[in-house]
Write a protein that binds this DNA or RNA. Sequence first.
DNA 1: AAACATTACGTAATCGTTTACGTAAATCAT
DNA 2: ATGATTTACGTAAACGATTACGTAATGTTT
Lengths: 334, 334
Amino acid sequence: MVSMKEIARSCGVSVATVSKALSDKPDISKPTRDRIRKVAEEMGYMLNASARALKTNRTYNIGVLFVDRMSAGLAHEYFSEILESFKKAAEESGYDITFINNRFAGQDSTYLMHCKYRNFDGVVIVSADFMDPQVLELVDSDIPRVSIDYSYNNCSSVISDNTKGLRDLVKYAISKGHRKIAFIHGERTDVTKKRVMGYYSTLRENGISVNENYVIEAKYHDIDLSYEKAKELLALEDRPTCIIFPDDYSRIGALSRMGEEKNPLPDDISVIGYDGIKMAKFVGLTTYEQDAVSLGRIACRRLVDAIENPTGICEHSVVAGKLIEGKTVKEVRQ
Amino acid sequence: MVSMKEIARSCGVSVATVSKALSDKPDISKPTRDRIRKVAEEMGYMLNASARALKTNRTYNIGVLFVDRMSAGLAHEYFSEILESFKKAAEESGYDITFINNRFAGQDSTYLMHCKYRNFDGVVIVSADFMDPQVLELVDSDIPRVSIDYSYNNCSSVISDNTKGLRDLVKYAISKGHRKIAFIHGERTDVTKKRVMGYYSTLRENGISVNENYVIEAKYHDIDLSYEKAKELLALEDRPTCIIFPDDYSRIGALSRMGEEKNPLPDDISVIGYDGIKMAKFVGLTTYEQDAVSLGRIACRRLVDAIENPTGICEHSVVAGKLIEGKTVKEVRQ
DNA sequence: AAACATTACGTAATCGTTTACGTAAATCAT
DNA sequence: ATGATTTACGTAAACGATTACGTAATGTTT
């Protein structure tokens, strides 16, 4: 690897001059700067990140905590889109991203230790067990950090507006004449609580009393379970006219399965998903699209801001999504 | 950040002794080693990756080239599984992974330059435009490297057995009595060519003459296009009895869409996917499961091996998948 | 007891940068 | 012409670790 030393020798200047020339410091004359840059280019020189980091204490590297919770992992379109968007924004700001894990040299360690080791300029917590002591330790550290879809009180966060999501969906269903609206929701996380709140409040505001049989707990991304719960709803004496699924994935999966089994969903039942994955749009599913791209971008901006202009105050942003009107909610006579 | 210097001071020894004690060098007595380790632990010491890398020229960091080709990106379950598996294996071997990009300090650069900058111990090319000059430059570099699902002649590779995939699927369809087997395949990449080869050879071996109308080019992960092509096939005078789709995603999407449109697939048509994504299993789709987990693991093993025991010779592995018998291929009378 | 080997640590150079500070030459002011 | 300022570069220390080599204090051999 060619270093500044060799460029210096080749140009007959000192290493310091090379460094300053390459980083556009003002006290180098234009002729020498140009000459040095040209030689550096010719020799295929590239700055050494380790040496620079050692001296400046800046790595231009962001740690990403992305734990394959509920075995959806990267394959979960929502999270993968957030990650892609974050990555893109980070790269534009001059940062790389590296996954955080809790191993060191192949041995067990902690997330925080790993971050110290790598000297990340900042950390983003995308998908994790938010109550894991190791995660909390990281959240309580003094590393610039931001969490996505979960709010700690000592850490900036960017979260998707889940309450609005369900409010919009329920309002839409009501506008189509539905009053018997069921909600198969995910496991009881913070996100789910917000959605359930939105569900209840919107029904209440519209003078619709909630049938508790219509609110069923399932899991995110669990096709089997959603399928079972949907069948339970359909078997009810007073069955709903509209079913909101935990997410698009389980909705599409559950109904596909019914289709393969030649027991398709009855014609008079409307269905709604959540997330706004691509496939949902392709098949015409009515859903609520979370703005994953904005979530990633805003999270990155917050983090880079916290790194470059540290104030210590943490800010919480809420990102709205939008309803996608598909063809799966039918008009119902009152 | 607490460094070895402070531990040395606190223990009344030299920095060298601390370094040797922490890395279990033999010439430190057990008492001092234990004392140093205890103090290091108490002070919350962690090794500094940059300093170590600078001195040893080893970063224990692997660069991942993962370009969002055909806008499937991380959300493509096949690739995300490979990546997860690779990541896991890398972590077990003591390596972290960082995404490669072609920017430096927010400016345009090249993949190779980025790798030089970060000093990756090795590089894996997972999903990229394999003919991109920048990728070729990386492939031709002297960085230990491995490519997945594409074989360069100067770079180790791990590829999924695409020919076997189609051979198995076609053989299965034939065993169920089908002779009119259509293949909607993806864009003409290397992978696709292998699959098409498998398709043709198996039909030929079974004495079935190929109806060229049955071989149609579409795209991977393109629901709309697969949907259109499937309809074209169904509109043929002599229509096929079995359709192989480019992948599970487009198959499920296309048929879901037909379902939503209340023009479901005729009962006498069999369908087959490719990839073995989770949803495919949930809905009972007959498909060919690529062994993404093995692909990732083997690729990592190859790479780590190339890093730690450099020989210069490159090896190519082919990973077999397996047919998943769902319920979407019906028995047909001869 | 002299010679030698072993043990356990320290010394100092080094990796590739950055940067505060020093300095010589050129330019300017008076 | 003298002193002050500016310009353009060099010097050297520092970041935090690693490691070849040196060395003092022990232990071992004959």
